[in-house]
Protein backbone atom coordinates (compact mmCIF):
# COMPACT_ATOMS: atom_id res chain seq x y z
CA UNK A 1 0.00 0.00 0.00
CA UNK A 2 2.72 2.40 0.98
CA UNK A 3 4.48 1.69 -2.33
CA UNK A 4 1.44 2.40 -4.48
CA UNK A 5 1.92 5.26 -6.96
CA UNK A 6 0.48 8.71 -6.46
CA UNK A 7 -3.23 8.77 -7.15
CA UNK A 8 -4.72 11.05 -9.72
CA UNK A 9 -7.59 13.21 -8.59
CA UNK A 10 -10.95 12.17 -9.87
CA UNK A 11 -13.97 14.37 -10.48
CA UNK A 12 -16.70 12.81 -8.36
CA UNK A 13 -19.48 15.33 -8.99
CA UNK A 14 -20.34 18.32 -11.17
CA UNK A 15 -18.67 21.57 -9.93
CA UNK A 16 -21.92 22.90 -8.41
CA UNK A 17 -21.94 20.01 -5.99
CA UNK A 18 -18.33 20.65 -4.93
CA UNK A 19 -19.28 24.28 -4.37
CA UNK A 20 -22.30 23.33 -2.24
CA UNK A 21 -20.01 20.99 -0.27
CA UNK A 22 -17.44 23.72 0.32
CA UNK A 23 -20.15 26.17 1.43
CA UNK A 24 -21.29 23.60 4.00
CA UNK A 25 -17.68 22.90 4.99
CA UNK A 26 -16.67 26.48 5.82
CA UNK A 27 -20.07 27.21 7.40
CA UNK A 28 -19.10 24.96 10.32
CA UNK A 29 -15.62 26.44 10.84
CA UNK A 30 -16.00 29.21 13.46
CA UNK A 31 -12.94 31.25 12.40
CA UNK A 32 -14.16 31.23 8.78
CA UNK A 33 -17.56 32.41 9.96
CA UNK A 34 -15.90 35.18 12.00
CA UNK A 35 -14.12 36.26 8.79
CA UNK A 36 -17.36 35.90 6.77
CA UNK A 37 -15.46 33.66 4.37
CA UNK A 38 -17.33 32.63 1.21
CA UNK A 39 -16.85 29.76 -1.23
CA UNK A 40 -17.09 31.23 -4.75
CA UNK A 41 -16.29 28.20 -6.90
CA UNK A 42 -14.93 24.68 -6.49
CA UNK A 43 -14.14 21.46 -8.29
CA UNK A 44 -11.85 18.48 -7.66
CA UNK A 45 -8.67 20.46 -8.34
CA UNK A 46 -9.41 24.12 -7.53
CA UNK A 47 -11.34 26.25 -5.10
CA UNK A 48 -11.91 30.01 -5.03
CA UNK A 49 -12.72 31.49 -1.61
CA UNK A 50 -13.10 35.12 -0.50
CA UNK A 51 -13.06 37.25 2.66
CA UNK A 52 -14.84 40.62 2.56
CA UNK A 53 -13.06 43.54 4.17
CA UNK A 54 -13.88 44.45 7.79
CA UNK A 55 -12.25 46.97 10.13
CA UNK A 56 -11.09 44.35 12.63
CA UNK A 57 -8.95 42.71 9.91
CA UNK A 58 -6.58 45.68 9.89
CA UNK A 59 -3.00 44.90 10.93
CA UNK A 60 -1.48 48.31 10.33
CA UNK A 61 -3.80 51.18 11.26
CA UNK A 62 -1.50 53.90 9.98
CA UNK A 63 -1.13 52.44 6.52
CA UNK A 64 -4.60 50.82 6.49
CA UNK A 65 -3.35 47.36 5.56
CA UNK A 66 -5.03 44.00 6.15
CA UNK A 67 -3.18 41.73 8.60
CA UNK A 68 -1.14 38.81 7.28
CA UNK A 69 -3.05 36.52 9.65
CA UNK A 70 -6.21 36.98 7.59
CA UNK A 71 -4.24 35.94 4.52
CA UNK A 72 -2.78 32.93 6.37
CA UNK A 73 -6.24 31.79 7.42
CA UNK A 74 -7.69 32.27 3.94
CA UNK A 75 -4.77 30.31 2.41
CA UNK A 76 -4.87 27.52 5.00
CA UNK A 77 -8.63 27.14 4.61
CA UNK A 78 -8.67 27.26 0.80
CA UNK A 79 -5.68 24.92 0.42
CA UNK A 80 -7.12 22.52 3.04
CA UNK A 81 -10.49 22.62 1.29
CA UNK A 82 -9.10 21.83 -2.14
CA UNK A 83 -7.27 18.91 -0.49
CA UNK A 84 -10.66 17.60 0.70
CA UNK A 85 -12.15 18.07 -2.79
CA UNK A 86 -9.34 16.07 -4.40
CA UNK A 87 -9.92 12.97 -2.27
CA UNK A 88 -12.10 10.02 -3.27
CA UNK A 89 -13.80 10.33 0.14
CA UNK A 90 -13.68 12.88 2.97
CA UNK A 91 -10.70 12.58 5.32
CA UNK A 92 -9.36 14.80 8.05
CA UNK A 93 -6.34 16.61 6.61
CA UNK A 94 -4.38 18.63 9.17
CA UNK A 95 -1.87 21.16 7.84
CA UNK A 96 1.73 19.97 7.94
CA UNK A 97 3.22 23.26 6.89
CA UNK A 98 2.26 26.55 5.31
CA UNK A 99 4.83 28.72 3.50
CA UNK A 100 3.73 32.19 2.43
CA UNK A 101 5.43 34.90 0.35
CA UNK A 102 3.89 38.34 0.74
CA UNK A 103 4.29 40.01 -2.64
CA UNK A 104 2.36 43.25 -2.13
CA UNK A 105 0.31 44.77 0.67
CA UNK A 106 -3.35 43.85 1.09
CA UNK A 107 -5.17 47.18 1.30
CA UNK A 108 -8.19 48.00 3.47
CA UNK A 109 -11.61 48.28 1.86
CA UNK A 110 -11.19 45.53 -0.73
CA UNK A 111 -12.23 41.87 -0.72
CA UNK A 112 -9.49 39.22 -0.57
CA UNK A 113 -9.76 36.27 -2.96
CA UNK A 114 -7.82 33.02 -2.72
CA UNK A 115 -7.48 30.48 -5.49
CA UNK A 116 -6.10 27.17 -4.24
CA UNK A 117 -5.00 24.28 -6.45
CA UNK A 118 -3.92 20.69 -6.07
CA UNK A 119 -0.29 20.01 -6.94
CA UNK A 120 -0.22 16.29 -6.12
CA UNK A 121 -2.13 13.75 -4.10
CA UNK A 122 -0.22 10.82 -2.62
CA UNK A 123 -1.44 8.10 -0.22
CA UNK A 124 -0.06 10.03 2.76
CA UNK A 125 0.35 13.67 1.76
CA UNK A 126 -1.57 16.23 -0.30
CA UNK A 127 0.51 19.00 -1.88
CA UNK A 128 -1.31 22.25 -2.66
CA UNK A 129 -0.60 25.83 -3.63
CA UNK A 130 -2.59 29.02 -3.32
CA UNK A 131 -2.57 32.61 -4.45
CA UNK A 132 -4.30 35.55 -2.77
CA UNK A 133 -5.32 38.67 -4.66
CA UNK A 134 -7.58 41.68 -4.43
CA UNK A 135 -7.42 42.46 -8.13
CA UNK A 136 -7.01 39.64 -10.59
CA UNK A 137 -3.49 39.45 -12.00
CA UNK A 138 -2.00 41.31 -9.04
CA UNK A 139 -1.11 38.66 -6.44
CA UNK A 140 -0.93 39.84 -2.82
CA UNK A 141 0.54 36.56 -1.55
CA UNK A 142 1.35 33.12 -2.78
CA UNK A 143 1.73 29.99 -0.71
CA UNK A 144 2.57 26.33 -0.65
CA UNK A 145 0.73 24.16 1.87
CA UNK A 146 1.05 20.44 2.55
CA UNK A 147 -1.51 18.33 4.35
CA UNK A 148 -1.46 14.90 6.05
CA UNK A 149 -4.11 12.34 5.17
CA UNK A 150 -5.47 10.74 8.32
CA UNK A 151 -7.39 8.08 6.37
CA UNK A 152 -10.98 7.69 5.18
CA UNK A 153 -11.45 4.78 7.61
CA UNK A 154 -11.22 7.26 10.52
CA UNK A 155 -14.32 9.13 9.37
CA UNK A 156 -17.85 7.71 9.02
CA UNK A 157 -18.94 7.60 5.38
CA UNK A 158 -22.07 9.54 6.41
CA UNK A 159 -19.90 12.61 6.92
CA UNK A 160 -18.72 12.50 3.32
CA UNK A 161 -22.29 11.97 2.14
CA UNK A 162 -23.56 14.86 4.25
CA UNK A 163 -20.78 17.19 3.09
CA UNK A 164 -21.26 16.55 -0.60
CA UNK A 165 -25.02 15.84 -0.48
CA UNK A 166 -26.80 16.67 -3.71
CA UNK A 167 -29.43 19.16 -2.54
CA UNK A 168 -31.01 19.48 -5.99
CA UNK A 169 -31.70 15.78 -6.39
CA UNK A 170 -32.74 15.35 -2.74
CA UNK A 171 -35.19 18.22 -3.16
CA UNK A 172 -36.32 16.67 -6.41
CA UNK A 173 -36.89 13.26 -4.85
CA UNK A 174 -38.66 14.91 -1.91
CA UNK A 175 -40.86 16.67 -4.46
CA UNK A 176 -41.54 13.44 -6.27
CA UNK A 177 -42.52 11.78 -3.02
CA UNK A 178 -45.05 14.43 -2.04
Amino acid sequence: MSNSPAQDTEMRFPPERYLEGMKRFIAVLPQCQALKMQAESADHQHVLFSVPFADHLIGNSRKQLIHGGVISTLLDTACGSVAVCALPRFEMCPTLDLRIDHLRPAVAGKTLFCKASIVKVTPQIIFTEGVVYQEEGKPVSRAVANFMRLGADKIPVEMDEALFADTDSSQKSAGELS
Binding site: L29, P30, Q31, G69, T73
Partner: peptide, 24 residues
Protein backbone atom coordinates in the same frame (compact mmCIF):
# COMPACT_ATOMS: atom_id res chain seq x y z
CA UNK B 1 -11.79 32.48 21.74
CA UNK B 2 -14.51 30.28 20.23
CA UNK B 3 -14.08 32.23 17.01
CA UNK B 4 -10.46 31.03 16.76
CA UNK B 5 -11.67 27.45 16.23
CA UNK B 6 -10.86 25.84 12.90
CA UNK B 7 -11.99 22.27 13.53
CA UNK B 8 -15.13 22.26 15.70
CA UNK B 9 -15.11 18.45 16.07
CA UNK B 10 -11.85 18.13 18.02
CA UNK B 11 -12.09 21.15 18.74
CA UNK B 12 -8.84 22.68 17.46
CA UNK B 13 -7.53 26.17 16.74
CA UNK B 14 -7.51 27.22 13.08
CA UNK B 15 -4.02 26.83 11.60
CA UNK B 16 -4.35 30.24 9.97
CA UNK B 17 -5.04 31.85 13.34
CA UNK B 18 -1.95 30.16 14.80
CA UNK B 19 0.03 31.59 11.86
CA UNK B 20 -1.51 35.05 12.40
CA UNK B 21 -0.66 34.88 16.11
CA UNK B 22 2.95 33.92 15.40
CA UNK B 23 3.37 36.58 12.71
CA UNK B 24 2.03 39.25 15.06
Amino acid sequence: LDSNTGNPLLPALHGGVIAGFMET
